[in-house]
Nucleic acid binder design. Structure first.
Lengths: 357, 357
DNA sequence: CTGTTAGCGCCTTCAA
DNA sequence: TTGAAGGCGCTAACAG
């Protein structure tokens, strides 16, 4: 059962295909009555534009490709959904791909998406290894990198990116813990391979130094930041004697593992130890978790990156590069407390409200 | 900067476009040396097949459309990612759309995807309202419904679907609670509008009746099942005196809200009250939550639906309909306990292991 | 206002 | 083994 084409309609209406095309595209040079007659006919016959054919000519598909280079976490899942929502509002469809980083899977995905004729590509990645890749492909198709980081001095960057300001996030974390009275803290889970982590770490250390706060860093030897690795690091950390009053976890997932370890070893959070996360994944707001954390604002990331990408698609002169840094946001919940215990009641009281919103 | 086409290559190689096409498609009737020469040239020139053009002829795009008709929950997000992974393995790209149900947004998405030439469509929906929609579109494009339910006697269904067996899930829940010694239980959160819920409810009631277990049902008047509505129902339920020893929540999200309410009112789970969820969303396995639940097995759902869809695409005779029912699975964690308390230690002990896996 | 003509990039007969 | 011609469904000049 063949689909009805513009040609069929033309024949049935006794006009040329051009006329039908014009009716379909609201062209100005056509009489209102023929247009109506044709549109009516299209409706009756269940005509549907073949967008492939149209794209072949216009070389625009109104589709953007999204590559999740690391779908280990809920953070990326949520990001993808927000991207879709935002893209839809701007009239774009989303073609979703996921590829474990490493190997040349990501390259293949780029090639595939370009072959499919996407108008632009959004790539999420936590490591800088994506940058040369982008530099290679961005002359072929507008591309925006999401969530990877770059050095504080970045004017030389020849890519487009949208990113949480991890350095500032680290600073915020340090300042917040300091403001609660903590003077000796541990930073758990930094991975050497993740520039995101390193930058966050640097921000934390710099601010801590200014404030005279002691920081001990526990590195994560694993290649990914999972709650399991958090659990392992937490256990190892807690089993030795320690005098820190707060722990900053490199991510919420890691923080969850740490909570689990603390639970099992009878360390009360936040009574004995404050715990601060990073990301604000959905989990963090759940009852019984209620992790205080620095939010990456997924929705803002999605919105900014989609807007930037569509901007690039529209202009396509492409000789300018934009780096967009989003300031993270402190979300206070129940896992950090002041060292002098007097304000705790107030924090507790606000818990239900912030959960419900 | 125009993309290099098959024609350019042909000119450069001094052959016809046909020959180039053949080289590209591993056609048998071509000499190995010309093929190699041409492929080499393509590589040098950075030639990329224009899949739009190819699809225009073959009328196959190797793209499947995925419509999430309700992205309120993490369940669907996770499902989407699994679908993508599975589709990729079978050589299909995924075009992702999300539309709040109601209105005619879903219709538009169908039309859009069909216009884009997708080879098939996967629709997730929890309500039967999707069925007439499917019946309308499936003659145009192979379609599979995921996660919506249907009556136990369903041979008359004229659609393709993959679905957790909610009736059996309800039965499992009842039998499990009964086996732990519970004789008076409450079922919180059933929505009249959700056939999924109703079927689950029926299975639960039927099994409970057989086992002589008393069930009180608390209906959810809200239009969605969120943790907030669970919280509200939980509060209302707990504030009146009750003699039930266990609560079956219609979904994990609702269960989380109930946990929160119980927490606030000082009701200990599972010591005073056992709580059983449904879905096994990612959250459920988190430390400090550790919800015992009936799993929908997202990955299996994704796999089965993608396989069924690709099957339909391949055959496309389309006169047969398949309903695939997946048996849910009980995931024991820490929120249900035996009424005679002696076995509890064993359950506790296994908790860490099941979290880590 | 409408129709004719010529492609977009590719594949597929058919003939050489 | 190769090439020429036609067409997939649509749009965009250019004439009428």
């Amino acid at each position: 059962m063949r689909r009805v084409t513009i040609k069929d309609i033309a024949r049935m209406a006794g006009v040329s295909v051009t006329t039908v095309s014009r009716a379909l595209n609201n062209a100005p040079e056509i009489s209102p009555e023929t247009r109506e007659r044709i549109l009516e006919l299209c409706r009756e016959e269940g005509y549907r534009t073949n967008l492939l054919a149209r794209s072949l000519i216009s070389s625009r598909t109104n589709v953007i490709g999204v590559i999740l280079s690391d779908i280990s976490g809920p953070f990326h899942a949520s990001l993808a959904l927000h991207i879709e929502t935002c893209a839809a509002q701007l009239g774009y469809q989303v073609m979703l791909c996921s590829g474990q980083p490493g190997s040349d899977r990501i390259d293949q995905l780029f090639d595939l998406l370009i072959s499919q004729g996407v108008d632009g590509i959004l790539l999420t990645s936590a490591s800088n290894s994506a940058i040369p890749l982008l530099e290679r492909y961005q002359s072929t198709v507008p591309t925006v990198l999401i969530g990877a980081t770059f050095a504080p001095v970045s004017s030389s960057m020849r890519i487009n990116s949208v990113c949480t300001d991890n350095y500032v996030g680290g600073q915020m974390a340090a300042r917040y813990l300091h403001s609660l009275g903590h003077r000796q803290v541990a930073y758990l889970g930094v991975r050497q391979g993740s520039d995101t982590h390193l930058l966050r770490h640097r921000g934390f250390l710099d601010a801590a130094a200014e404030l005279d706060m002691t920081v001990d860093t526990v590195w994560n030897p694993a290649s990914h930041s999972t709650s399991e690795s958090g659990y392992q690091m937490g256990r190892r950390f807690f089993l030795k004697p320690f005098s820190h009053t707060a722990v900053f976890a490199v991510s919420d997932l890691v923080a969850l593992g740490i909570m689990q370890a603390a639970d099992e070893l009878g360390i009360a959070i936040p009574e004995q130890l404050s715990l601060l996360g990073f990301d604000n994944i959905d989990y963090a707001s759940l009852p019984k978790i209620r992790l205080t954390t620095i939010s990456q604002r997924t929705e803002a990331l999605a919105g900014a990156s989609v807007r930037l990408l569509t901007e690039l698609i529209r202009q396509s002169d492409g000789m300018e590069f934009t780096q967009c840094l989003l300031t993270p946001e402190l979300i206070q919940r129940d896992t950090c407390r002041e060292i002098c215990t007097e304000h705790k009641a107030a924090v507790q009281k606000s818990s239900r409200r912030s959960y419900l919103r």
